[in-house]
Design a protein around this nucleic acid. Sequence first.
DNA 1: GTGAAAGCGCTAACAC
DNA 2: GTGTTAGCGCTTTCAC
Lengths: 335, 335
Amino acid sequence: MNVTVKDVAREAGVSVATVSRVLNGSDAVTEKSAQRVREAVVKLGYSPNFLGRNLRKRATNVILVIIPNADHSLYMKICAGMQACALRYGYDIITAVSNAATAVETRHLNMLFNKTVDGAVLMGTSFDAGTLNRLAEEYDIALCCEGVTGADVLTVTVDDERAGYDAADALIKLGHRRLGFIGVESNALSASLREEGFLRALGDHGIELPEEYIYRDTYDAVNGAKAMERFLALAEPPTAVFAVSDLIALSAVRRAAELGCMAGKDISVIGFDDIDACSLTTPSLSTVAQNCSEMSEVVCRKLIENIKSERKDRGYYTVEHRVMMRESTGVLNKK
Amino acid sequence: MNVTVKDVAREAGVSVATVSRVLNGSDAVTEKSAQRVREAVVKLGYSPNFLGRNLRKRATNVILVIIPNADHSLYMKICAGMQACALRYGYDIITAVSNAATAVETRHLNMLFNKTVDGAVLMGTSFDAGTLNRLAEEYDIALCCEGVTGADVLTVTVDDERAGYDAADALIKLGHRRLGFIGVESNALSASLREEGFLRALGDHGIELPEEYIYRDTYDAVNGAKAMERFLALAEPPTAVFAVSDLIALSAVRRAAELGCMAGKDISVIGFDDIDACSLTTPSLSTVAQNCSEMSEVVCRKLIENIKSERKDRGYYTVEHRVMMRESTGVLNKK
DNA sequence: GTGAAAGCGCTAACAC
DNA sequence: GTGTTAGCGCTTTCAC
């Protein structure tokens, strides 16, 4: 019932070795035999069983990408980019969502342990540096979007510190001196780097940051609204705000509007990531865009190189970011 | 270097058969042997090679989900739901993006042909009914979100006709009699069903639909803007508009605002899908939500049942939808 | 209860 | 250039 190389060999009147040679593009075969094999393949509707092939070759040419969060369009964009890149190297990408839960992430990594995939890209992993280093000892893994302090693992991200700096700088260039910051209470490296960069920019411009201008909470859109409420209740609210994620920024913009304060006019708000919604809302959201295509390209190529080679590249690479000014930011409105 | 059952057997002082029995939970083994095997597994850090196991078992317990479009949060939500459901049955979900391109979709389906996965869910496939029927003859596949006319394949969607009806009905209940429709020029079954339902609602209320109140273009957000321009240029523009997708609706809302026409006040707009952006924009977008969790649950469970059984369920199932009224719709503003 | 051995489908070394 | 055969790692009959 299930057609195998044997069947094809019999049909074509050759040996299984010849069939395998034709299928794998080995040139050591006469055109006549090759032709006969190809015909038999078509006639029998043969499709090679990759379990057998992979078992023998000890490779699957498949890379696993673990996504922490199904709601974030950034991750899907990067996956699409990696897929395009992998294809050129003869690899396939499969993705799985971890919901940032260690248990789920571990379950997915089983595919690495049980040889179902050749390598894995972790986007915002929940593992600590020690675990990652142990993993990297035995398997080909890479971090993307989100690095981990102390992890000696191939990593590709934007330069978050620099990006935070640039976001603040863009606001300052618009004349703002009272800058608010909405961050997240987590050990996410990217968020704290963005905060560091933000603070450095303020320092460079001799701007002080009062305690009340900083708001940190869980990574949840609704906290943009909460932060904005707090800011606007101050005697002297900030005139511009940087949020470490677009979702938070959008929620802040919305709450501000409800409180009679229009983003872009009465207050400036800039987010991070450039998710699709940024350009769909009114006002459209200024943000810092990550270069997804470059990020996916770099991480995918380097991981495949690692898989194929004995020498393992464990470098930390950064890709470009770009400040995108839209309608939610404007020059300081001197009253 | 790579530890196998053999190594575990030697370490535990038993045969490979016993090791396998312990690993697979067969009861025909003494607790003493089992204990020794478990210890050896831990000591050697053994992890079974699934290529060998799957080859032997002729099953992988993995389901492939093909997503047409990486930008649509709906698909990711459904994937997450399917993952949760699959887990309960001991299956894993892997996803791949096709960009609605037949070539890519075919490439992904190779995983089905080469036995890398046990079944596949297609969300908005680019295959025609004939191809799907032939596929379903030999493999376990299911359609989700988007059916195909004439495809005798397990399918789970919302009742798009009814949903289109309900969207129109909601607008009519707000007092609107001049209803516009923004559709897509494609053979997507869901879109045409939504249109049918929309028209039926109008018919039921004795409302005529002038030709100029219908706009159809490619499935692209920017067409919401184009449609709105056309509508607002009419001597008597529609007072309410139904768009078959949220992205299109959001773009329409935005363009309307630019033309001085505020959604929710001057014109009502309702979309479809309830993507995340709906509640983040101002005004928030009214829409028709699909019951993602039910959809993913049903399709996943029934597909797994098909995989496990000889009897194949090829039914067409529909799940609930819900009209969500937000700020972009309002009662007819009589001037 | 346990072990020996066959075999899942494939590739590649080796012999001709 | 082609065929024979071993073996990738695993499960599972079949003896014992």
